[in-house]
Design a protein around this nucleic acid. Structure first.
Lengths: 338, 338
DNA sequence: ATGAAAGCGCTAACAG
DNA sequence: CTGTTAGCGCTTTCAT
């Protein structure tokens, strides 16, 4: 006595029988083909409701060669993946916008070689109609595979050192950094230091460049320290800066999380913020509102960046040959720390 | 002149030709069937490498009626979705563990009715082999669909008011709350208040119950305020408590984020922490290390909870008729605030 | 141990 | 406008 492991679902055949039309007509009705009589359409709709029919995507994929899904690839080392609100915003927006078009979002990690291999196999297998890249690095073999297979792909944030021309949407990191540095200088700060993110990330590099654009020769090595976006690294970098340049009176930090770390280091060193040292962050993430003092920072239009990223991908999937990358303006948020 | 939109991929047919065997044999070789000669196996492997063959999942699904994918459903209103590290940990662990078995993770939101509908259709369509529920509420129509279709499902955190017996993995919220409340009492605190999470979430309800377990009749209405997990709600609730019970000397807050808000309210009211008022959180999330003073809190074994959740689901997918839910112990982390 | 052949459920080309 | 038909690429009997 074999019990079928799962109730078998109604097929297009059942719908055709109930509606009293052929399978071809059902297919046309379902897919919004113009050549369907009103009567047939109504009959099919009734039959679909009655049978509880849901299209079998595997069968459809087999013939259309479209999968109805988009792959989002997260390429950071897994641990610190989600300290950054960038990811969650993009994910949320992508889920919403793709769902509207009945495209499903599948997520894969690509932190180590094994992962990367899996992702390449997945893409090569044609299992998705497009790819959403997050923090991809320049040498990633996935980029080659993508262009070889002509799979639509976009990245959220520019790929650093990109010889590959994957379109992207991003905040104006460089301009934002210039703006903040200028603000610090305009406030009368004379010895302005910076703590950068990893220089192999666009945010890390571009924000440092913006800083240097404004300060020019005054941006000496002694005033630049390197972090990795984590709170802890900000704390360490600040301690180091204090040792190297005890007379600094301001610090532009590459992101809010590191700025929170810097604040802790400053407090430990007995410096008052902002009286002795002004501290500025970048992102306007939620931590900016939970530090003491409240953090002055550059707001990134995360939501918009995410929206644009997804829009770009959708356009490509819909057949656009090429799309233009977009860069969105940042906004200075003055609170207490600078 | 029609250009094919995408290079056509090698099929099992190509592999068979190159390997000099039949398609049936290739299929057996690929799927690890025992009845394949060593010679045939080697030939197939060589041919696969040579052709760059990757199985077409859609075709396979069509016959096996398995999809090789798991659906993760996020049922919170979209905005505050990711303030909670719970989600990201579960997602990360799920991606890793599922990838190991070549199962892909698709994510869907189910915040409003439209979303919920889509999810039900997706599941009804048989588009996934199992479902990972996150913060599902008791009345969710998805639960009915799941049991009707006999689709394996587990939840991360118990479903409140659950008549449905979906297996789950969770931290010991109630025990943890008891432990923390007891710690506060043992420290000599006499007027202990609490700020709860939403009572329709397991964490919200169970942590309040744990609080009441220890305090008994001393847990009066005047000492209980309600929040919604957000920082802002914690700040508001604390302000309210201070107005109602100015003599309180400790507060057990349902999560760290609200505790950060409570800290701000206390500071605004001129109370010193922990001298005047002890503050305790729950979760040991990253904000606990960025407050001033550092937050004393209960650590949830998030990573383990996630691991167990996924393990449970995989067992179900592998054919277990039923699995037991698991509850993991929490740990008291004493820092500066209490 | 292997080949041949029959579908899985669907779309699309073709007649009508 | 609609029915018929030929596959899409794969697994899985059934013979051999």
């Amino acid at each position: 006595m074999h019990v079928s492991p799962r109730a078998s679902r109604p097929t297009i055949h059942d719908v055709a029988r109930v509606a009293g039309v052929s399978r071809g007509t059902v297919s046309r009705a379902i897919n919004g083909d113009a050549y369907v009589s009103a009567a047939a359409l109504a009959a099919v709709q009734r039959a679909v409701a009655e049978t509880g029919y849901v299209v079998n995507r595997a069968a459809r994929s087999l013939v259309t060669r479209q999968t109805g899904s988009v792959l989002m690839v997260l390429s950071e080392p897994q641990e610190k993946l989600f300290e950054d609100p960038n990811y969650s915003t993009l994910m949320r927006v992508a889920m919403r916008r793709l769902a509207e078009r009945d495209i499903s979002l599948v997520m894969m990690l690509s932190g180590n070689d094994g992962d990367r291999d899996r992702v390449v196999r997945y893409v090569r297998g044609g299992h998705c109609d497009g790819v959403l890249l997050v923090t991809t690095h320049s040498g990633d073999p996935l980029l080659d595979e993508l262009s070889r297979q002509h799979i639509p792909a976009v990245t959220c944030g520019e790929i650093p050192g990109g010889r590959h021309q994957v379109p992207f949407a991003a905040a104006d990191d460089r301009g934002g950094a210039q703006r903040m540095t200028q603000y610090l200088a305009d406030s009368g700060r004379r010895r302005i230091a910076t703590i950068t993110g990893p220089l192999d990330t666009p945010g890390g590099l571009l924000r440092l460049e913006g800083f240097c654009d404004v300060l020019g020769r005054k941006a000496t090595k002694k005033l630049i320290a390197y972090g990795d976006w984590t709170r802890r690294s900000g704390e360490l970098a600040m301690t180091e800066l204090l040792a190297r340049s005890p007379d600094l009176d301001a610090v532009f930090v590459g992101n809010d999380l590191m700025a929170a770390g810097a604040l802790a280091a400053l407090r430990a060193a007995g410096r008052r913020v902002p009286e002795d040292v002004a501290v500025a962050g970048f992102d306007d993430s939620s931590v900016a509102m939970s530090t003491h003092p409240l953090l002055t920072t550059m707001r990134q239009p995360l939501e918009q960046v995410a929206e644009e990223t997804v829009r770009l991908l959708l356009e490509l999937i819909d057949g656009s040959e090429a799309v233009d990358s977009v860069v969105l303006p940042t906004e200075l948020i003055v609170r207490e720390s600078a």
